[in-house]
Amino acid sequence: KGCNCRRSGCLKNYCECYEAQIMCSSICKCIGCKNY
Rank of each mutant, 00 (worst) to 15 (best):
R7Q: 15
L11P: 09
I31S: 14
C3E: 09
C15T: 04
A20P: 06
I27M: 11
L11E: 12
S8M: 05
K29V: 12
R6E: 14
C33W: 03
Y36D: 14
A20C: 03
C10S: 07
I31G: 14
N35T: 08
S25K: 07
C5E: 08
Y18C: 09
R7T: 12
G2E: 12
K12Y: 00
C28E: 08
C15S: 01
I22L: 10
I31L: 11
E16W: 03
I27R: 13
C24W: 01
Y36A: 14
Y18V: 06
A20I: 01
R6G: 14
Y18D: 09
I22E: 12
C10L: 04
S26M: 04
C28W: 01
N4Q: 11
C30Q: 07
I22P: 11
A20S: 11
G2Q: 08
Q21S: 11
E19D: 06
C10N: 04
K29I: 05
S8G: 12
N35M: 00
S8R: 08
S8P: 11
N4I: 05
S25F: 01
C10T: 06
C3P: 02
K34Q: 09
K12I: 04
C28P: 07
E19R: 08
L11R: 05
C24L: 04
C30M: 00
C33P: 11
G9N: 06
K1W: 00
S25T: 08
E16G: 09
R7M: 15
Y18R: 08
I31E: 15
G9S: 00
C30R: 03
E19Q: 09
K34C: 13
Q21E: 14
C33D: 10
G9E: 12
G9F: 00
C10P: 01
A20V: 07
R6N: 04
G32P: 10
I27A: 14
Y36P: 15
N4C: 08
Y36R: 15
C15Q: 06
R6Q: 15
S25W: 03
Y14W: 11
E19Y: 15
R7L: 11
C15V: 01
S8F: 04
S25G: 13
K34S: 13
I31K: 09
I31D: 15
C10D: 09
C10M: 02
I22S: 10
C33N: 15
C24E: 12
